[in-house]
Simulated scan of single mutants.
Amino acid sequence: MNETLALICDCDGVLINSEAIAGAVLIRELERRWPGLELTDVITPLLGVQTERLLMAVASEVGKTLSADDVAAIYGAAQREAVMAPMVDGIAGALGKIPLVKACASNSTSSYVRAVLERTGLISFFSDRIFTADLVANPKPAPDVYLLTASTLGVSPENCLVIEDSVAGATAAVAAGMTVYGFTGTTHVPVAHAGKLLAVGASRTFVRMSELPELVVKWSAERE
């Protein structure tokens, strides 16, 4: 295959099945602080947005406030639990069948992403090709982290295939000029989510990681 093509994967919800865990922690911590509110429907659509921004968006939507200490405590609780999440089913096998250069581009921090990839062994597919929100000025849905990834890899954005599970992430990759395939096979994804990914520019969606190698073959062939 053409060596100028790259596969770029989001971390949470694509490599690691952590979004449901993180979402549950955010809901638990916020409902504990704001008794009487039911926040599942508010938080779930925002998963994939950088946690600090998500928390402030939720607070604004429900007319509440959070102190800096609250934000730090909630973020820490979510990270501690999410870091132990399992791999997404089938991801290791799928990546092993894809002979493209691979990178991870995440809205999380470098330390978190490296920790989960090392714990699961997925680091073997990415090495030091890890790009995170703390390395750029603006997190997803801005395209910064994807543009940094392509620039560092030396691959043009149009030759990058991105796998994303969140609206924020898909929006970022589309804005960077990349092809986006939306993954909807993790436990946190609601039924209508595929339509939301397509609405922001994802080219297609899929539900099983076993489908990914063949999808990559077809995408790569279109660029030969």
Rank of each mutant, 00 (worst) to 15 (best):
Q79F: 08
Q79D: 11
A82T: 05
V83A: 07
V83R: 00
M84L: 15
M84E: 13
M84A: 14
A85G: 00
A85Q: 04
P86E: 02
P86L: 04
M87T: 12
M87V: 09
V88Y: 02
V88C: 08
D89Q: 08
D89R: 08
D89L: 07
D89W: 00
D89I: 04
G90F: 01
I91Q: 05
A92H: 03
A92M: 09
G93L: 11
A94H: 04
A94W: 00
L95A: 03
K97N: 13
K97E: 15
I98A: 02
I98P: 00
I98R: 02
I98V: 09
I98N: 00
I98K: 05
P99S: 10
P99H: 06
P99L: 13
L100I: 02
L100M: 10
L100A: 04
L100F: 07
V101K: 10
V101T: 14
V101G: 01
A103Y: 02
A103W: 02
C104L: 11
C104V: 14
C104P: 04
A105I: 04
S108E: 05
S108T: 10
S108R: 08
S108H: 02
T109H: 12
T109K: 13
S110N: 11
S110C: 11
S110E: 13
S110H: 13
S111Y: 09
S111A: 15
Y112V: 01
A115P: 03
A115H: 14
A115C: 12
A115S: 15
A115R: 11
V116C: 06
E118F: 05
R119T: 10
R119Y: 03
R119N: 13
T120R: 08
T120L: 12
T120H: 10
G121N: 15
G121T: 13
L122Y: 05
L122D: 02
I123V: 15
I123H: 14
S124H: 14
S124T: 15
S127C: 12
D128P: 06
R129G: 04
R129H: 14
R129D: 11
I130L: 15
I130H: 08
T132W: 06
A133L: 06
A133I: 04
A133F: 08
D134V: 07
D134R: 07
L135K: 13
L135Y: 05
V136H: 07
V136W: 05
A137F: 07
A137Y: 07
A137C: 09
N138G: 04
N138H: 15
P139T: 04
P139M: 03
K140S: 03
K140E: 03
P141W: 00
P141N: 02
P141T: 04
A142C: 10
A142L: 01
P143Y: 06
P143Q: 09
D144E: 10
D144C: 08
V145R: 06
Y146S: 01
Y146K: 08
L147V: 11
L148F: 07
L148S: 00
T149I: 01
T149H: 00
A150I: 02
S151H: 11
S151W: 09
S151T: 12
T152H: 15
T152A: 09
L153G: 05
L153F: 07
S156Q: 13
S156W: 00
P157G: 05
E158W: 10
